[in-house]
Amino acid sequence: MSITRLDLTGLKCPLPALKTRKALQSLRPGERLEVCCTDPLAAIDIPNLIRETGDRVEIVDRSDRAILFLIEKSAAPLE
Rank of each mutant, 00 (worst) to 15 (best):
20 T>W: 02
11 L>F: 15
34 E>G: 09
38 T>Y: 03
59 I>A: 06
8 L>I: 12
59 I>C: 06
31 E>P: 00
73 K>R: 15
61 D>K: 15
33 L>S: 03
46 I>V: 14
75 A>S: 11
33 L>T: 06
68 L>K: 13
61 D>N: 14
73 K>I: 02
18 L>Q: 14
2 S>C: 04
8 L>C: 06
1 M>Q: 11
64 D>V: 06
39 D>R: 06
10 G>V: 12
46 I>C: 10
41 L>Q: 14
2 S>Y: 05
1 M>S: 13
14 P>S: 14
28 R>V: 06
71 I>C: 06
24 L>V: 05
6 L>P: 03
15 L>F: 11
74 S>Q: 01
71 I>W: 02
39 D>K: 07
1 M>E: 12
61 D>R: 13
6 L>S: 02
29 P>D: 01
72 E>V: 14
69 F>Q: 08
37 C>A: 15
22 K>R: 11
64 D>W: 01
77 P>S: 10
26 S>K: 05
17 A>C: 10
34 E>K: 14
24 L>R: 01
50 I>W: 04
12 K>Y: 12
77 P>D: 05
67 I>S: 04
35 V>H: 11
37 C>S: 11
37 C>L: 06
25 Q>H: 09
41 L>T: 10
7 D>A: 08
4 T>S: 12
55 D>C: 09
27 L>S: 03
62 R>E: 08
